[in-house]
Every structure is written in C-alpha cells, then in structure tokens.
Design a protein around this nucleic acid. Structure first.
Length: 1115
RNA sequence: GCCCGGAUGGUGGAAUGGUAGACACGAAGGACUUAAAAUCCUUUGGCUUCACGGCUGUGCGGGUUCAAGUCCCGCUUCGGGUACCA
C-alpha cells in the first residue's frame, strides 16, 4: 500500500473532531500546561507559508507535553477589530463585521488543513459583544482606580476621594498627570464637575489633553508603538503632533514593575532588552533653575511678562501683557470700552470703584486677550457671554482662551447676558463669593495652582530640568525649552516675541517625519536668563525642537562639552563650551562618555565622573536645589481611536465630564452607522449613529431590568445612575478603543471563555494561572507585550488574577522570507534569456511567479499562460532549459514569491508541510522559504511508511529487536526529547531521518521499535503517526499514548573509535575498548605502528588522552 | 549614533572547546523500466595525486589552549530593534 497522505489526513482530522480529541477541561489530577500562540489578525490575504511556523512549533510542544502527562491548554482565536477591515469598509461599503467573518472562515479553513490540536470550543473573537464586554468592564475598573506609588499598586478611586476629604493631597505619593497641591477645604469647595476633573488627574484610565500622534490619512490618533519613524506602522501614512483630549491608560505608573518583572520571566535576551529600552529607566536629578532677577529690574522688567512681576509684587504696576500684544490690541480695547453692551454697563456700574472691596478693570488686556472685567489682585476674570458664544466654534475658542488664562493663574467665571440683566445682584454676590475664596496673588496661594489645574509648581519662576549628569552642572552654559513647553510663552521677552513666534510657527508646521529627516540645528533665544543654582552664573534660555516636550520636564540644562546635541547647538549659535573632564579635547566634538576626572567643577574637582554624579546628587538634595529622581521614557498609552471598528467605550458625558455606565449594562454594543467615515462636523464615525445617547431611567425603574439585547442606537440605555433625571439625554463617547484593547487580556479569557459572570472564574484562573509557553513574532515586542503585561498587573492588583506576569516563557519565531525568481528579458524584445547567458545581452530583470518555477527551472508553458503579454514569448535556453535567477526578499504578492500552505498540503500533505517548516532551520532565526527542499522530508515519510508496508503486505512483526536496533531507537528518543525541550526542531527532524535511514538499512519492521517511534513522531507529524499507531493494533488515539523513555543501557558502546591526532591534526582512527583506562589507551596508542610513522622518530612532548573522545600527541 | 543578532559548501543548515560540513536539497554517474514517474545504489568543500595520501578550509586580523566554527580582544559586513530620552 502506498503512503496516501490525503486519505490518512482526512480520516484522522475527522476522527479527532468526532471524538473531541482536543477538548480540554480542568483536571486537578494532572499538572497543567498552557501553550499560546499570539493572537492572529485575520487579514484578507489569508495565510502564507510563513504564518504557520509558530503555530506548528507550539503545536509540537503542546502534543509533546500532553504525551508527557500534562493537561494542556492550547487555544486559538482572532484579534478581529482593526484598521484594515475598516479601511476596506470605507472603500467598498462592505461592513467590517462581514469581511472579518469571511476572513476568519478562510483562516480557519487553512488552519484546519494543517492538523493543529487547538481546542476550538474555546475560540474567542475580540469583536464579539460577549468578549468585548470584558474589555469594557476592565476599562471601567481602570477608570475607578488610581495607582499608589508607595504601594506600587492600583487601588480604588473611592479610597482617594476619602483621603482628599480628610487631608487633600498632603503626604500623597500617587501617579498623576500633573502634580496638584490642595487641602481638604479646597477639595470640598469644588463643584462635582471640578472634582471630576481633578480625579481624572489620578485615574488609571483617564481623559486628558495630550500631545498625540494624529494620522490624517487614517483619521485617527495612534499610540507611540503604532508609529515608527514619523509614519504609521499600518499603511505608512505621515503622522503629526496635535493637542487633543483623549482617553489614556496610565501605563507609565507601572514602569518600575514592568521593568522588575522582566527578571522573573524567561524571555529571549533581545526581547527583554527591547522592553527595557522602551521603558527607558534613567536615574538622575531634577534641578530647579530660578529666573535671573537682574532681568526684572530696570528696563528688562517692563518688557518681561507677568511672571517677573509676580516675583516682585510690591510694585504696584501690573504688566499683564507684553509690548507686542499691547500695541496690537489696546486700540481695540479702547473701542470696546466706549461701546459697552447693556449687560456690561449694568455690571460695570456695580463693580467699579472698589464696590466689591477689590479693584476691577474693564476690557483690560491680559496676554493676548481682552476679558470683560478683571480683578488683578485676585486674578479673577468675569466674562459676560452674548448669543454668539453659543456657537461650536466660539465655545472652542473660549475654551482655548480659558486654558491660557488659567495657565497664567487666572480664575474665570462666566455669566450670560440674561443673568446680568435679570438678576444683577445675584451675579455680584457670586463674584464676591469667588473673590473671598481666592487668596491674593501676593500671598502666593497654593490653592491657585489647584484652581488652575493645568500648571505645576513655580508658575514659571522656576524652570525644572531633568539630567542624568548632575556632575556636569558647572558646565551648563545655556538652557533649552521644547517649543511646546508652557514656559515658552512666559519667558519670551517682547523684544524676542516676534522671532520666537516665527520659530514656533515654523516648528509647528513640520511633521514628525520632517523633523526626524532634517536634523539641522534650529532654535531661538527667548530673551530670558536663569541662574545656575550651584555656580550662580547667569545663563540664557533658548528654545529648540531638539528638546522633546514629552520627556522629563520639557526643558534641559545644556552642557555642550559633554553632550553631543548640546554641542551641535552651542557651536551653531556660538555659545560657550566649558570642558569638565581633565585632558579632554572639545574643540571638535563633545565627550559624552561617563568617564574621566572632573575639573572646572568646584567641589566636584578631582572626582571620577561616577563619584561626581553621586556627590552632585547628594549636594542638590541636601541644599534643596532639586531632588533625586528616576525618569521613565515609557509614556501613557493613548486609548482613543477616532474610528468605527473597535470596542465602544462604556462612557457617557454629563457637563462635559465622563461617567461610566453601570456594569450591568455591558456590553455596550457597537451601533450601526450609514457610513464608516467621520461626520461633517469632524466627529468620529460613531457620531453618525442614531440615538447614540444615554437616557437615565426614571427613579422608579431602579435599573433592575436585564441588559438590553438590541443595538444601542435603536434605543437609549437605562442605568440606575444617581446622576440622571428622567428625560435627560447624555451623549455617549464617540471614539472606540485601539487594537491592543482586545488583545491585552485574551489569554485569561481562554481559561473560561463562556463565562458570562466574570472575565475568568477564580477557579479556572487558579488552575491555569498563566501562559507557560508563548510563541509569536518580535513585532509585538513594544506594543502588545507591554500592554498585556500592564493589563495583567492591573488585574492582579485588583485580586482578579493570581499571577503577576502573564507569559512565563516566550519564544519569537523568525520570519520566513520569500525566495524570488527572475527571468531576463532582452531589452525591447519579447525574448527571454536563461540566467547564465544573460550577460551576453542587455536585459531587464523581471520577477516571475515562484509557483511556475521548479529548482530554478522555468516551466515555459506555464509562463506563457501566466500573463497574456508572454503568450508569444521566445526563449534562449541552456541545455534545453530556462534557468531562473533568484534572490531572498520579503514574502509579498508584488514579488510573486508568496507560497500558500494550502498548495503544499494539496501536493505533499500536512505532515510534510509541518516537518518541512521545522526542518528549514532554527525556529528563532529568519530564513527563506524554498519549496525545493520539501522533497527530502516527503521522501522521509514515504520511507518510514515502507517500514510498515511492502506493496499490500503489512511488514510489522513481533520479533525481538537486536541491540543495534534498540540503540538506534533510544538514541533517537534521547535526541528528540533534548531537541523538543530546547526548541531545536530542525535537528529533531534530522534525527528522525537518521533513525529511519538506519532502520531501513537493517530492514527492521519490528513492533517494539516502530511503536515507540510512531509515538515519538506524533507531535511532529500527527496524521501519519496516528495511522501507524493504529496499524500497530492500537485503538485509542496516539495523542494519549505515553511518551517513550530513553534507556541509557542500550546506548552503551563496547568500543570507542579514538581519533589519534598529532599537534591537533587527526591522522588515523583506532578502535579501543570503551572501558580501557587512560594509561592503557596511552600505552596502546604509543605502541601502534601508525603512531611510530607519524612520530617521525621524535619523542612526544606531551600526550593528552580524553577518555571516550580523543587522543592528542604533542610533538 | 546606541542595543541585540548573524556571517560555515552551489543552497537550507549541523557540530556540551575534542574527527568541521550531520541531515536535506541540488548536481553527476549508475540500477530497475519500452519510456516516464516513483524507488534503490554510488560520488559530491576547494586544491593536488593514477592511487595511498597530502595541503588547505567556518567573514578579516590578533590572542588564550595540547586542541578554537565554538572562548577573549580589535575590525569588516549583513539583518533586526530603537533614536535628538538629556
């Protein structure tokens, strides 16, 4: 009987399905083992031959572990939300759910052909409401949590509210966006809206105004890991920086734990290294530089902004703007004053002449704005809004203006025209109330900072910088602010205003990509100076885009002698360079290395750099010039996407503040929309959904009814939120979650995929714990693998999962590259010349489909039919054949080198495909796919088959195996176990080949040899192994057999063939008994006549005998 | 620039410091066959020799060792990651 792989594979795949062979249940009597493949995104292109590589490797390991007696969890599912399906939907109008479903079906069909042992009962899809319910649920938990830096742990936000009520922010050390300071009284005096805004500063899932990566082509914001070199990873579209209010996850809070955790898991060095770099921990110091007071005296003072005034608040003059803005606006302000509106007149009469106890001014310029009324002493602004303030645009402008004024320390209250006209006294009382709450600006009230919310310590009087080189403080010759820094506006003098403005404009226009590509030195002087806190020297403050707003404080102290970036800047702008290391030459370049002896550095002189860093830090902390600080590069993950095909946020808005839906209302299903494009107003696609609003229930309803089953936009939501009043409508969030949302906790869901009460039951989690072996590509090193570790740690903090790390051991499979073939067309003809003759002509190299080329020989007939253009092609052959050229390239359609696994299965069978993928080379290395080699493994299977059958006779017999046969078997067992455990599958396939070749030579068809061999092979080639196992008379599946054990007894050799070498060169072999002693080996070798020949009469200087290995004679 | 991997025949690759090139592809020759496919046998790093054999050989240059593809130092080069991260 022939080896009929088609019949065999179909038969056993059907058998496994029918018998639920791969169904997994919790079994307390067996140890668990969890093997996971990285979640595939089901793309429309289907699988090519590179995709299953990791799946085959994990499948082998799963089957091996099962044979060793483990209860193995080996699931598969789909990361089904994502951009490609949505882009396709935009182009074709086809709903992404439809294409996704189709793609999944295709994927599944392809996977099924390869014979994987997945438990498909556990399949999950991120786009299914039953699944994303738990993504939304986790988001709510994050919203309701903050991170305590001292405990290094997430905690309920309710706890934080209690603390605020008791002591404000005193003694708190918690992760936040901005460092706020307020006391219990401040907190209690806030409105709910204000309190909610403050809480966002601490929540783990929070909404904040951030500089984000905006991709205009995709119409969405992207996370840092989704952008590479200034373009989107998906699609390669340019990305620009924008300031937007976005959901974010406070991943940065977990930076230290994410770093520490790397030591507890078995990942490859390169991957741990990549994660370490991405987290980017640097130890250093945050140093405070005060503004130079000399500048606020005399001439400089007038030109300077309000900051220098608030420093010297005894002066009665309030310069609330700069010369430039003043000259531009003051005529306008005058005009406004002369033509007040009715409401303005009414209010002005009630405020003027210290009637409130404080002096008010009307239409007074502040920065570049002209507010209606302002009390400068209390920094309170009163605005009266007319009808035009209701338009969307105006609201936006007002908000921007409010932000800037608040940054400058002003509090703004607004009244409508109607209010002032109808209840003027009420308005005045409200203003008085506000005035009494605010301490005078001269008292430097901390509350003011809390009020403004958007500004930290210092109000611009102090510039903080972060440095890892505190030792170089004496070499600071200037400071640099990032163009986006909030300090820029405040430190720019009027003289420099124009220039700075031009620079900021120019910088803003450049995309990230342009900035990276064009590394010219650019920058502008702000006009201000700061004082070096250690040396006391005055240094200029510059602005340049080589300083990043997002890292550290957005400002640096520049040490041109010892930082190459500062050096380039100093050279360009002719700023001083002070060398600090003895004997260093900074005339051509800076010395960035942390080595040498300090000089020009006061108390640090004579120390090594290492010592100086420590001493400088100590000094700075002691003198309170700053503090020792650890900084991380890791940023919070931006979690909003202005797209359709993702998880909706379980969020609605009340007075602009976000609130979570009640958990009983989950899942909040993705609504239907008419188009997958933004609305005319520029809102995300969900803005098109009808009735995408939250309607709170009437109080009597109590919210007890079961979760709605129809789409949200058919009807409104009901929730028992105390905030809602019947009849109110609150808008739901219009953004959706990003791709990594659904893939961050999926490994937990596989443990208990059908549970509708919890993400995973405690029992299931306690049994399966975490992933023992995770296999996937390196492309997830900084995205998925950071986010899912973060997500898991968060759930761990909440006590919902029992392991702190999700993936114990991780292996990256290498990429399978394509091997392209070329034909050579003679220029301006339709004639093709064979590879080795092409140099005689002028030719063009053309990619040719590798599927019509075999062993680099072109199938001419197929080629002619491949493309109508070649129908009449002519060929110049060598030995009657057309030889193609070849090259290793990326596997892609455009290179015509894509090989489909279906075709391989069709031609050779799944077992051959599995073995060949493994045989190609080491799992972790990338290597080219060349179908040519596949015949070798296919022949091996046929040869194995021939041990069982000759024509139609079954050869298997019960004869006792010889010692030689046993040795062959046990040698193989030993090798296979070693190789599987070291993921060296290419060498195991070789070992199988050697074994079968040897048994073939011996014509061995003995059951005692073949049965263990078929079990041994089962993880690699399960179909043929199952068939052979049954041929041997077994009626159970080979999957539940017992893996053979190596008996060392059979491996013992009675004799050793010693290589006899002279000066390390092997000259001849000598067979000696294995148990011969060292002395006897030496004696025997020395008396051998061949030895005498090679000694050439000389006396050996030394004789080395390594028992069982080698003999070396040194002459 | 920095970090991490590689570099071994015509090709994919093997080798706990101990016979470099296992295993496989390809190629060449042969057997079976009317023929082809399939299968089986032999050869196959290079140079040299009729042959036995000899010389040489793991990107390059040094070193450690009785012995180096393997360990150390310095380069070349190709991948991958990352980047004005202070």
């Amino acid at each position: 009987m022939e080896y009929n792989f088609r019949e065999i594979e179909q038969k056993w795949q059907a058998y496994w399905k029918k018998n639920s062979t791969y169904k997994t249940e919790i079994d307390q009597n067996k140890p668990k083992y969890y093997v996971l493949d990285m979640f595939p995104y089901p793309s429309g292109a289907g699988l090519h031959v590179g995709h299953p590589l990791g799946y085959i490797a994990s499948d082998i390991f799963s089957r091996y572990k099962r044979l060793q007696g483990y209860n193995v969890l080996h699931p598969m599912g789909y990361d089904a939300f994502g951009l490609p399906a949505e882009q396709y939907a935009i182009q074709t109008g086809q709903h992404p759910a439809v294409t996704t479903k189709k793609n999944i079906a295709r994927y599944r069909e392809q996977l099924d052909k390869i014979g994987f042992c997945y438990d498909w009962d556990r399949e999950i899809r991120t786009c299914e409401p039953d699944y994303y319910k738990w993504t939304q649920w986790a988001f709510i938990q994050m919203f309701n949590s903050y991170f305590c830096n001292d405990a290094q742990q997430a905690r309920p936000i309710a706890e934080l509210i209690e603390v605020f009520e008791l002591q404000g922010t005193k003694d708190l050390n918690i992760a936040c966006t901005v460092d706020l300071q307020f006391n219990a009284e401040d907190w209690k005096s806030k409105t709910e809206k204000e309190q909610q805004e403050i809480l966002l500063n601490y929540r783990i899932a929070y909404l904040a105004d951030l500089r984000v990566n905006w991709c205009p082509a995709l119409g969405t914001v992207l996370a840092n890991d989704e952008v590479s070199e200034g373009v989107s990873v998906r699609g390669g579209h340019p990305v620009e920086q924008r300031f937007m209010r976005q959901w974010s996850l406070r991943v940065s809070a977990y930076a230290q734990r994410l770093l520490d955790g790397l030591n507890t898991i078995e990942w490859t060095d390169s991957l741990t290294e990549t994660q370490k770099n991405w987290i980017g921990r640097s130890e250093g110091a945050e140093i405070k530089f005060h503004l130079s007071p000399t500048l606020s005296k005399g001439e400089g003072a007038e030109q300077n902004t309000i900051l220098s005034q608030s420093k010297r608040d005894k002066k009665p003059d309030f310069f609330t703007t700069n010369k430039l803005d003043w000259s531009l606006l003051h005529d306008h302000a005058k005009a406004m004053r002369s033509e007040p509106t009715e409401a303005e007149s009414i209010l002005w009469e009630m405020l003027r002449g210290n009637k409130t106890g404080y002096k008010f001014r009307r239409q007074h310029q502040i920065d570049r704005f002209i507010p209606d009324f302002v009390c400068l002493e209390k920094k309170l602004i009163v605005e009266i809004d007319g009808e035009y303030h209701l338009s969307d645009e105006q609201i936006e402008l007002d908000e921007a203006r409010t932000d800037i004024l608040e940054e400058l320390g002003y509090k703004i209250i607004r009244f409508s025209n109607e209010d002032v006209k109808s209840v003027p006294h009420f308005v005045v009382e409200k203003i008085k109330g506000e005035l009494s709450k605010i301490e005078s600006s001269s008292e430097k009230a901390s509350v003011q900072k809390a009020v403004s919310l958007s500004f930290g310590e210092g109000q611009g009087e102090v510039i903080e910088v972060f440095t890892t080189r505190a030792d170089t403080i004496y070499g600071v010759t200037f400071m640099v602010l990032a163009p986006e820094s909030k300090l820029v506006k405040q430190l720019t003098t009027s003289e420099q205003a124009k220039e700075v403005e031009n620079y900021l404009e120019a910088t803003k226009k450049r995309t990230e990509r342009e900035r990276l590509a064009d590394r010219r030195v650019t920058g502008v002087f702000s006009g201000s100076y700061a004082i070096n806190p250690v040396s006391g020297t005055e240094i200029p403050i510059w602005i340049s885009d080589y300083v990043l707003a997002g890292y550290g404080t957005g400002a640096i102290m520049a040490v041109p002698a010892h930082d190459s970036r500062d050096y380039a800047f100093a050279k360009y702008f002719n700023l001083p360079i002070i060398p600090l290391i003895e004997g260093c030459d900074v005339s051509e370049e800076s010395l960035d290395a942390k080595e040498g002896i300090m000089m020009n550095s006061g108390f640090l002189n004579g120390l090594t750099v290492k010592e100086a860093i420590a001493k400088a830090k100590e000094y700075i902390a002691e003198k309170k010039l700053g503090r020792v600080k650890v900084n991380f590069r890791l940023r919070d993950a931006i979690f909003s996407r202005q797209r359709y095909w993702g998880e909706p946020f379980p969020v609605y808005y009340k007075e602009g503040m976000p609130y979570m839906l009640d958990e009983s209302r989950l899942p909040l299903k993705l609504p239907e929309v008419d188009k997958f494009l933004p609305t005319e107003k520029g809102e995300p696609p969900l803005g098109r959904a009808k009735n995408w609003v939250y309607l709170p229930p009437a109080p009597s309803e109590g919210g007890g009814e079961s979760s709605n089953s129809t789409l949200q936009n058919d009807n409104a939501l009901h929730s028992p939120s105390p905030l809602g009043r019947a009849g109110e409508r609150f808008p739901l969030e219009l953004c959706t979650m990003p791709g990594f949302a659904g893939s961050s906790a999926y490994y937990l869901r596989y443990m208990d995929p059908k549970n509708d009460k919890a993400l995973v039951s405690p029992a299931a989690n306690k049994y399966w714990r975490n992933v023992d072996l995770y296999i996937g590509g390196t492309e997830h090193a900084t995205g998925h693998l950071i986010y899912s570790r973060f997500w898991n740690k968060f759930l761990f903090d909440l006590g919902l999962v029992c392991e702190d790390e999700p993936f114990k051991k991780l292996i990256n499979q290498g990429m399978i590259q394509g091997r392209s073939n070329f034909v050579y067309r003679i220029k301006d003809t339709n004639t093709f010349v064979s590879l080795n003759l092409k140099n005689q002509y002028e030719t063009t190299e053309i990619h040719v489909d590798v599927n019509i080329v075999s062993n680099d020989i072109l199938d001419i007939e197929k080629f002619k039919n491949w493309n109508p253009e070649y129908k009449s092609a002519e060929f110049i052959l060598e030995d009657g054949k057309y030889h193609c050229g070849w090259a290793v390239e990326k596997m892609s359609k455009s290179m015509y080198n894509v090989v489909n696994p279906d075709d391989i299965v069709e031609k050779y069978g799944a077992d051959t495909l599995r073995l060949y993928e493994m045989f190609l080379g080491p799992l972790e290395q990338s290597k080219p796919w060349d179908t040519n080699g596949i015949d070798g493994v296919h022949r091996f299977l046929k040869r194995l088959w021939s041990l069982f059958y000759k024509e139609n006779t079954l050869l298997v017999n019960d004869e006792k195996p010889t010692a030689e046969e046993l040795k062959i078997l046990h040698k193989t067992i030993k090798k296979i176990i070693f190789d599987i455990e070291n993921f060296s599958y290419n060498t195991s396939v070789s070992a199988f080949m050697i074994c079968v070749n040897e048994l073939f030579t011996l014509k061995c068809s003995k059951r005692e040899i073949l049965e263990p061999l078929s079990i041994l092979l089962a993880p690699f080639a399960p179909h043929i192994a199952e068939e052979l196992y049954h041929l041997l008379g077994n009626s159970e599946t080979v999957c539940d057999a017992i893996f053979p054990i190596c008996n060392e007894e059979y491996l013992k050799e009675s004799a050793v063939k010693y290589p006899i070498s002279f000066n390390g060169k092997v000259r001849f072999m000598l067979e000696l008994p294995a148990d011969m002693s060292k002395e006897n080996v030496e004696k025997t070798v020395m008396t051998n006549e061949q030895t005498t020949k090679y000694l050439e009469g000389k006396l050996p200087k030394k004789i080395i005998v390594v028992l069982g290995k080698i003999v070396n004679i040194v002459l």
